[in-house]
């Protein structure tokens, strides 16, 4: 019995080591001077000439501007997608209307479709409207985030006890008031969960950002960082520094909102 426990700890330790090693290695590389990244000193853990040069160079490389773009686009998308999804999910979870099954099928179906299908037509429409290289990219992000948000919220709304609405109905409250004053406050944790998952989804998106915002001043962080790999030489010092900077917002979100994220990820995946 003791031995299995020991084995478990060894496996978990190994698992954490494998998860963490890449981050650790990138982190220490970002402080090494370029000369130590190459050649015989490449495997040295602590550099004797640690430097912040690579981080300083990032100011020139547009990384901070791209973080700003990502932040604006992700925030805006999160707000409107969460509002739309809350309304829609409540309707699906609680109200009766014709075509509900069809709507659910459409929502689930579009989330399974390869994004590659919509990119071409959306690109052409954006060229036509003059929306290439702009924050309008937030609109097509509904395509990837809305189905997931609706899905998470439907599971949350169905968990709210029906009796609360029924007692409101007996008191003669309108459906709009019941939704606004009884349901919404109770659903806030679920709404928050869906908002976090939406934000991460947009923050991490790559394909639409790559095609719709090709100009470097409108790059999002995911695209900007992929462009750091030059054609011929790669300045790993800068690349690793940029990686560290871009990873920090995600780390903060994960550590602060871990409970919501886990609930969002597992809702629907588990049959209760």
């Amino acid at each position: 019995m003791k031995d299995t426990k020991k084995l478990f700890y060894i496996i978990v330790g190994l698992y954490l080591l494998i998860i963490f090693f890449p981050f650790f290695w990138v982190f220490i590389t970002s402080f090494k001077p370029e000369s130590e990244i190459w050649g015989s000193e490449a495997l040295k853990v602590i550099s004797s000439n640690a430097t912040l040069d690579h981080y300083k160079a990032l100011f020139k490389a547009n990384i901070f501007n791209s973080l700003k773009n990502s932040f604006i686009i992700a925030s805006f998308t999160t707000v409107y997608v969460t509002v739309l999804a809350s309304l829609c999910a409540y309707s699906i979870a609680r109200l009766k209307f014709w075509g509900k099954r069809l709507l659910l099928a459409a929502v689930l179906g579009t989330s399974m479709f390869p994004q590659m299908i919509v990119v071409g037509p959306i690109y052409r429409a954006f060229v036509g409207l003059g929306w290439i290289n702009s924050y309008w990219i937030t609109l097509p992000y509904s395509m990837i985030t809305l189905p997931v948000a609706i899905y998470i919220l439907v599971t949350h709304f169905t968990k709210i006890p029906k009796e609360l609405e029924e007692s409101g109905m007996i008191d003669g409250a309108s459906k709009i008031r019941i939704f606004g004053e009884i349901i919404l406050p109770l659903a806030l944790p679920g709404i928050f969960t869906s908002a976090i998952i939406t934000f991460i989804g947009v923050w991490n998106e790559f394909l639409l950002a790559l095609t719709l915002n090709p100009n470097s001043s409108y790059h999002t962080a995911t695209v900007a960082i992929s462009f750091l790999r030059g054609q011929f030489t790669i300045f790993w010092g800068q690349v690793t520094a940029a990686t560290v900077v871009v990873t920090i917002p995600t780390l903060i979100i994960v550590l602060v909102f871990q409970k919501q994220i886990i609930s969002g990820l597992t809702s629907g995946a588990v049959k209760e």
């Binding site: 998860i19 981050f23 991460i200 923050w203 991490n204 790559f206 962080a221 995911t222 695209v223 960082i225 992929s226 990686t243 871009v246 990873t247 995600t250 780390l251 979100i253 994960v254 871990q258 994220i261 886990i262 990820l265």
Partner: peptide, 10 residues
């Protein structure tokens, strides 16, 4: 959660 949460391009 961390490997899942970081962008794939990163």
């Amino acid at each position: 959660l961390i490997p899942w949460a970081i962008p794939t391009s990163v």
